[in-house]
């Protein structure tokens, strides 16, 4: 296992390096946004003095490099700073700016909701995709294979909001099976939360299934010409078992990679679906924060998105490595 541990540590170190570089990019990009919080909050009639005083209060007058390292230093210690909007609100009510809601407090419940939705979606989409992929490989070029391909491809080609409204129409309006509003809140019990999240989860399932299913199918079919698959057939093994026990274990690496990419999408790219179902996820928070130039929140969201991408790809790499017996069992 020595070599595997070393590879994992290497990847981890590379992941951290990537995250560091991404943090610089995020900081620069966010600072390139036209306008700033002071202008956004004061509107058109802002006097230069008022803008300057708000800027000073939020530290926006410091040079960018200083602000970057203040932010990075805080982020490393888990302090993502204070939300501008909340801090500002606090100053109006006369309390101390520093005691306003921190970014972490603001993001945490939203991020939890996003993870919940991604989790429910993954729990449906991943098994379904692999199952459909295996069946499509087994009955390749049959009617079933083609129908699955057409269905999954049309669903991935349709915009998210369109799928969402179609599902609402059929599952909520015409047949009132599921609620069309996913306004979940703290203290809801699990089953209620699940029911409320089901429609957005199904929408997202339709959006991510195609790629995973097609990769499963392609990775398996790719292996069907290998001598060991022919050997399994010549041993009189049933076609289903040939695919599941002989082809699938060797096809895992590409499948895992695609699954990781899609899971990352579920965490970072679902704002449209959140808006349609009024689901309180991190995507909405992010968009709102961009609108009012609440830079600490925007930066924190970006950093979380980047970390999610890196972490999921990292786990995909590690799992792919572990799926190779040559590395698990060195000579």
């Amino acid at each position: 296992m020595g070599s595997v541990t070393r590879i994992i540590l290497q990847r981890l170190a590379l992941g951290l390096l990537t995250l560091f570089i991404v943090s610089i990019v995020i900081f620069i990009a966010v600072n390139l946004l036209p306008g700033d919080f002071a202008e956004a909050i004061l509107g058109q009639g802002a006097t230069p003095e008022a803008v300057a005083s708000i800027r000073e209060g939020l530290g926006l007058d410091k040079p960018p490099i200083t602000r970057y390292f203040d932010w990075l230093g805080g982020a490393i210690q888990g302090d993502l700073g204070s939300s501008f909007a909340q801090a500002n609100f606090a100053s109006f009510t006369g309390s101390d700016a520093a005691s306003g809601t921190t970014v972490a407090e603001q993001i945490a419940p939203r991020f939890k909701n996003t993870l919940f939705l991604a989790g429910v979606t993954a729990a449906i989409a991943v098994p379904v995709s692999i199952f459909l992929g295996v069946l499509a490989a087994l009955y390749r070029n049959s009617i079933f294979d083609r129908a699955t391909n057409i269905l999954t491809l049309s669903s991935i080609s349709s915009p998210d909001f369109f799928l969402a409204y179609v599902l609402i129409l059929f599952l909520s309006v015409l047949n009132p099976l599921l609620p069309s509003l996913s306004n979940i809140y703290d203290g809801m019990d699990f089953s209620e939360r699940l029911v409320k999240s089901l429609l957005p989860a199904l929408t997202l399932t339709l959006a991510v299934t195609a790629q995973m299913m097609r990769m499963t199918r392609a990775a398996i079919i790719n292996l069907l010409a290998s001598p060991y698959i022919e050997m399994a057939r010549l041993k009189g093994i049933s076609p289903m078992r040939v695919i599941v026990t002989h082809a699938l274990p060797n096809a895992l690496a590409p499948i895992i990679t695609v699954i990781a990419l899609n899971l990352a999408y579920l965490i970072t790219g679902v704002v449209v679906v959140e808006v349609v179902f009024v689901y309180p996820g991190i995507g909405q928070l992010f968009v709102d924060s961009v609108k009012i130039r609440d830079i600490p929140v925007v930066q924190a969201c970006c950093l979380i998105f980047a970390a999610a991408y890196i972490l999921l790809n990292l786990s995909a790499d590690v799992l792919s490595i572990l799926s190779n017996p040559r590395l698990r069992h060195p000579k």
Partner: peptide
């Protein structure tokens, strides 16, 4: 197949499933 008629392939290295 496998029960009454069996097959031994040219390259055993390629014909055993690596997994």
């Amino acid at each position: 197949l496998g029960k009454r008629i069996a097959y031994v392939a040219q390259s055993a290295a390629a014909s055993f499933n690596p997994a």
